[in-house]
């Protein structure tokens, strides 16, 4: 075999190995991944894991606006970062939890065409942001005028997702309540477009801290003193 062919073969094998083990293999395995059913007695809940899928239309808007540049969507393991211990990054929004929010697993993103795990954290993590959103109008307000909610925020103001329309007599049910400096003016109101609603639906669908089957049992077992 000529030197050239040997060279190319060597390169092919050296790169082919990680290509096969990191890409091809996992892709094939992932496609066989299916939801797992919960065991009502052991896990305390019914149904399957993961219980719900994210709102896909809204995820398209999320991709289009480039939210992934500043927001992550994964809670890291407690040995690597403070993620799980941070207030409001899980279901509990007000108090202090005894256990950290669990780190995310592969199945948490089952059903998503692409998981936007995030490039940087200029803003808080959004893996469980669905629990933070109690008021849709407030969420719309923070998209339309982020600095009216958090003065220090550097989030872009996504006004292109909203329509400023003339107020027709009674205030429209969907119109946003804005403080004066962000308000378009007397006689006008700001109404979300379908895309803004889809984006909020997507955000509300982001809840990734439901129990993992068998985890409760595993943690109880781990807590037992070793014999």
């Amino acid at each position: 075999m000529s030197d050239f062919r040997k060279f190319v073969l060597r390169i092919g094998i050296l790169f082919g190995l990680p290509w096969f083990f990191l890409i091809v293999g996992p892709v094939m395995k992932y496609q066989k991944l299916a939801p797992i059913a919960y065991d009502k007695d052991k896990d305390g809940v019914d149904g399957q894991y993961p219980p719900s899928v994210i709102h896909r239309q809204g995820q398209l808007v999320y991709a289009r606006e480039g939210c992934v540049q500043c927001h992550s969507q994964m809670i890291r393991s407690a040995n690597l970062g403070l993620d799980g211990w941070r207030k409001g990054w899980g279901q509990e929004q007000e108090g202090r939890t005894a256990e950290p929010v669990r780190s995310n697993t592969l199945r948490d993103y089952l059903g998503e065409p692409f998981a936007f795990l995030g490039i940087q954290r200029t803003g808080p993590d959004l893996a469980n942001v669905g629990w933070r959103i109690t008021d849709r109008a407030k969420m719309h307000q923070s998209f339309y005028a982020p600095r009216s909610v958090n003065q220090w925020s550097t989030m872009p103001s996504y006004r292109q997702l909203y329509t400023v329309q003339k107020a027709q007599g009674q205030k429209s049910k969907l119109a946003l309540d804005l403080p004066e400096e962000f308000h378009p003016g007397k006689g006008w109101e700001v109404v979300p477009t379908a895309e803004a609603e889809a984006l909020v639906d997507y955000m509300i669908s982001l809840k990734k801290d439901y129990p993992v089957p068998g985890m409760a049992a595993a943690m109880a077992a781990a807590a037992q003193p070793k014999k």
Binding site: L22, V27, Y109, P113, A115, L117
Partner: peptide, 13 residues
Amino acid sequence: CIGDLGAIGAGIN
């Protein structure tokens, strides 16, 4: 093309 790879897609990225 294959798509729908969730977190594995992010890993490939």
